[in-house]
Design a protein around this nucleic acid. Structure first.
Lengths: 210, 210
DNA sequence: GAGAAGTCGTGATTATTTTCACAATTAGTA
DNA sequence: TACTAATTGTGAAAATAATCACGACTTCTC
């Protein structure tokens, strides 16, 4: 709403910064420079300073950044206070990995429920998160606005359609299928096979030195 | 070696194109336009044409692209013939998801072996892939040049160090830890928590219409 | 308190990526 | 064959992102 001028490339790095600052705080460090951050998160220090500068002057010249202050600032900016509720679809290995991940700790998101078609899974819990039958999607999913898709590709379209019907706002899609949604729904796509393939391609064609 | 001028942004999209072309072929389609491809993979059609053009004139004006020809071309370019061997570290849920994924089908990569510290897992197989003890890394991993890291963050540094020692060339890191490697090792980083958080951030701050 | 060392914030520059827009060419049709 | 509709490939422009480089300010040390 407000900071609409923040470059997308910057926005994508914010959660990364946030996580690392959290680590620093746990380690009891109270001060950090863009150079140190750079070494840790592998982003050029000038880029980090530029990123931060979109939010105003957060550091002090000759000193660096105060970890606590920066963290407090990010918490607000990243809406760490507000909790976003998430539903997960497909309790296979990948889905289970998500359920075991405790997002809430460093995070503003919580998986509230999961869906699957397997009767052996329905009715159980994983990591304290209840698993419902996929048929009950409409009934159980009331206010949840974000979904993670870890279902087989063949199910992607039908589930997506129902989610859109239900008023979903964002989908994190791990399916190889490229799903079609109305313009007002945001989809981020992660394809594990593509990621691996891309790495291999880069290895062969982009001899590094940097 | 040859096509060193291909933009990285393009390179990242190639596996995506490849996968979709494969689907088309299975559907028996012999012809496709950049517009159709665009609808399917959600990339602007001009971008697709530009991407392809880095490899020469692959299409025909007024006609589009011949699926089979394009596919044959990509197969060579993406080294689909050559098989890249991969080792996986950490047979938790995420690691298991990878082992079940049959990469070879549409793919130039194969997970040859997995490593874990859990004695219950060591000695077994998942999806036909043997699981060794992490202590045997040096012994078992001979020619494998690519590793997938799905271990706990706390293990990331020590395993990475051993991999580097062993002559690793590329690492796909799913650990939240940002690992440090020599310049000649390529690391791609995917942090599931960061991805989810980024999606949520975008939802709140980048109202879409596009 | 003065000088040295460190570090930010940012104007300017450069690099990369996307998009526009249209001439050229082809397929399809009558 | 001649006309129409489709679609590429690409020069040029625009948008986005990364990096350089330095003035200004802060802390530290003696």
């Amino acid at each position: 709403m407000d900071q609409n001028k923040i470059p997308q490339a910057t926005a994508k790095r914010l959660p990364l910064y946030y996580r690392f600052l959290n680590n620093l705080q746990h380690q009891g460090k109270s001060r950090v420079s863009s150079k140190e951050l750079s070494d840790a998160v592998k982003v050029d220090s000038a880029t980090i300073r530029r990123d931060f500068s979109y939010f105003g002057a957060l550091g002090k010249k000759g000193y660096g950044y105060n970890v606590e202050y920066l963290l407090g600032f990010f918490r607000k900016t990243l809406d760490q206070d507000e909790l976003t509720e998430v539903a997960l679809f497909g309790v296979g290995n990948l889905g289970t990995a998500f359920l075991h991940y405790n997002f809430v700790k460093n995070n503003n998101t919580k998986i509230m429920m999961a869906f699957d078609a397997d009767p052996d899974k329905v009715g159980t819990e994983i990591g304290g998160i209840p698993i419902y039958h996929i048929d009950d999607l409409e009934e159980k999913m009331k206010d949840v606005k974000v979904a993670i898709l870890t279902i087989p590709a063949s199910e992607a379209d039908s589930v997506t359609e129902r989610l859109v019907e239900q008023g979903i706002e964002g989908i994190l899609n791990f399916t190889p299928a490229r799903i079609t949604v109305p313009d007002h729904v945001r989809v981020h796509h992660i394809d594990l096979a593509v990621e691996l393939q891309a790495l291999v391609y880069f290895l062969k064609h982009y001899p590094l030195d940097k």
